[in-house]
């Protein structure tokens, strides 16, 4: 499953690495929108398969950030 950006913003960091095992609601990435830091949380348990974006990128809604399996 691809985890996507929930809104327009600048990606500050990706807080996981490929191969990490995450639980639901763990932080996957940090986004800055409207001068506010917004954490993107894992929608379910799983393992990070790929990272699809990089810090500094400006993301639109629905830009995939990581793939979670």
């Amino acid at each position: 499953m691809q985890v996507k950006a929930p809104m327009v913003g600048k990606l500050v960091s990706i807080d996981v690495n490929v191969g990490d095992k995450v639980n639901e609601n763990d932080t996957l990435a940090t986004l800055e929108a409207m001068k506010m830091i917004i954490k993107i949380f894992a929608p379910s348990d799983g393992e990070i398969k790929e990272i699809l974006s990089s810090p500094g990128a400006v993301v639109d809604p629905d830009t995939p950030i990581v793939t979670l399996v």
Partner: peptide, 23 residues
């Protein structure tokens, strides 16, 4: 603006981390 929207966003995230209310 936009303080109230931010506060709302934070309350939404508290209730459900999958909630992105900011916009």
């Amino acid at each position: 603006v936009p303080m109230a929207a931010r506060v709302v966003h934070v309350m939404g995230t508290e209730a459900n981390p999958q909630n992105y209310l900011l916009m």
